[in-house]
Nucleic acid binder design. Structure first.
Lengths: 342, 342
DNA sequence: CAACTTCTGGCAACCGGTTGTCCCCCGCCG
DNA sequence: CGGCGGGGGACAACCGGTTGCCAGAAGTTG
């Protein structure tokens, strides 16, 4: 007679295919095939197995499956900073897409630090089937190193030899500059984010080119932290400038710039027009509402993840990056150039 | 002679302990113990093994380790909506804490849906060592069901028999009501969030009690969606009310309420005072800045995760929930009651 | 009716670690 | 010099599935 415990907590071992096999009077392999290869076993037998499994509450152990099939059904997603809503959105898109495909998402917040990112990647690489790098801060070489070990897709970064999903920074930025130009602004400033950020470089280049073509003056200040505080700080640096139009690396910073300018006694958009990147709630809430270059963040996350799964399943990537459109959403933070009183 | 491929992609199988064993001239078990039980093997042997491992680039396979030790070193974190910054913060706190302990975090966005949440939980339960439920929408019974299968910790919800981390909703709410009362507001409204949300219930009860004790009139409207749009909608419903002080379920909604009221031609705080819950960036940015009940979200995520790990490692939980303090942060959206002109 | 398929279940090896157990060898002690 | 103790390495079983291969049964074909 076995010991009769009181309320057993998580005592009893979970049932395995062997338990099911015994209950159904078949071999373990038959149980395995019943679930993994329907059709391979006689339907009557299968029915018996399923009944036995249900009766004893069998659930396949995903770890064991992962070991024997070498497929963990997990994807790693690395983001720079979960507190930044753009990563929350990207992650959400990716997570929902993964879930739909029966995959789990291992998140890691790399805290805007290339070293942490690298180390993290190495650590979790062996247990996932692929890696989605959102706005990686690593060097190209490091990214390729990761991609050599596992299928990888990069979001928000253009990079040869590794599949990418990027927004059309070029056109988006161009539209923003045109918008400012049409409003009469001649002197523009680009407020830069982190040097390690690829979109930052792309936006600055596109800004610079567009200014040149449209015969506008375009300067750059920064880099600043890609946060509200960083933008606020940038607004102070903007003080002595003659610039009437400002393009800011991201939405959080742009909001910071607006607040900083207001703090300094300038009105937006009457004195200075501010345009940002990323269409997140905070930009819509702030007053004046932020004119911004909008990219479909959730969709990018989802697309990135789906492409990654395709890769995992043996697809070969076309060399071309996936480019999603960016459009300008004009709100209240930009307007006509002020009449020069000075 | 083997086929000589060109650039081999991810061809070669990762080295195993058997490869290391062969290279070092020892048995596989010795290799395993070299890493898993330092001290059990002679230091000279260990050195040889480590050298061999380094030479061939061996890395332990976490899946195999998970199978044989029954420890996957992964924790599931379920949140209702990643697009809500409070979950992003909770998740961030949890992720960083997990990472520090060498654990990975599997996130799942349950989209505010109890059914999805349940199903998700069942699906990933077998591959994690524990579960952190942030603002679960499931029934108490369903949560207990989960907790019976794996160690679980619940955040933002009080629940007997399952370890919890909650903010001091009672005191936080009380402070908010006192604040409004001291400013002269006699007629208050609580704008409710989802019925399935535990903090929503706790806040409403505390609000109601506080109003009673302080001899104020406290009504309730809702439920509304816990989003900006939901708050905006609520503001419309607030229209005909004589209430001059409004307490709103969360920050996103509170911001929506402010904007909705402004839209309706009311000034905040001159005509109506608005107080919210959750101290997130958006509440600081909005104009007027939101007076809010602030709780340490990242810390709650981190604490929840650490307690979960303790549980996983065999600690028994004291029955008491962990209560973290909530404090009122007074900003611009609340002020003195307007002089009654009507 | 023999030869050949097709269907279907079982056996056993395998994925890559971990760990209980055995045993050899060495040193130490009486 | 014999016996004892313990350090340390090897063997093999095990975690829980998956799958190649085999063989018996049933069905098909000439």
């Amino acid at each position: 007679m076995e010991a009769e415990g009181g309320s057993e907590p998580r005592a009893t071992r979970a049932p395995t295919i062997y338990d099911v096999a015994q209950a159904a009077g078949v071999a373990a392999s038959t149980v395995s095939r019943t679930f993994a290869r329907p059709g391979r076993v006689n339907s009557q037998t299968a029915e018996r197995v399923r009944a036995a499994a249900a009766a004893i509450g069998y659930r396949a152990n995903p770890v064991a499956q992962a070991l024997s099939t070498a497929r963990s059904r997990m994807i790693a997603v690395l983001v720079s900073d979960l507190a930044n809503p753009i990563y929350a959105e990207l992650l959400r898109g990716a997570q929902v897409a993964a879930s739909a495909a029966g995959y789990g998402v291992l998140v890691e917040d790399t805290r805007e630090d290339a070293a942490i990112e690298r180390e993290t990647a190495e650590r979790i690489l062996p247990m996932v089937e692929g890696v989605l790098l959102a706005s990686s801060r690593m060097s190209d070489a490091a990214i390729r190193g990761v991609a050599k070990q596992r299928p990888a897709v990069v979001i928000n970064r253009g990079l040869a030899d590794v599949p990418c999903v990027v927004a059309d920074e070029q056109r988006g930025t161009r539209r923003a500059v045109e918008h400012l130009g049409e409003a009469g602004h001649r002197d523009l400033v680009y407020v830069a984010g982190p040097d390690a950020s690829w979109p930052n470089g792309a936006r600055w280049r596109a800004f610079s080119d567009a200014c040149h073509e449209l015969d506008l003056t375009g300067r750059r200040i920064g880099p600043f932290e890609p946060t509200f505080a960083g933008g606020f700080e940038a607004a102070l640096a903007l003080g002595g400038s003659r610039a009437s139009g400002v393009l800011v690396f991201n939405a959080l910073m742009a909001v910071g710039v607006i607040r900083g300018l207001q703090q300094a006694g300038l009105r937006v958009p009457e004195d200075v027009s501010v345009v940002g990147f990323d269409d997140v709630l905070i930009g819509q809430i702030v007053s004046p509402a932020l004119t911004t270059v909008s990219t479909p963040l959730q969709a990018m996350g989802a697309t990135g993840l789906r492409n990654l799964l395709a890769l995992v399943n043996g697809a070969r990537s076309r060399g071309e990056p996936v480019v999603v459109p960016a459009r300008l959403v004009v709100r209240e933070s930009s307007g006509a150039v002020p009449a020069r009183t000075g």
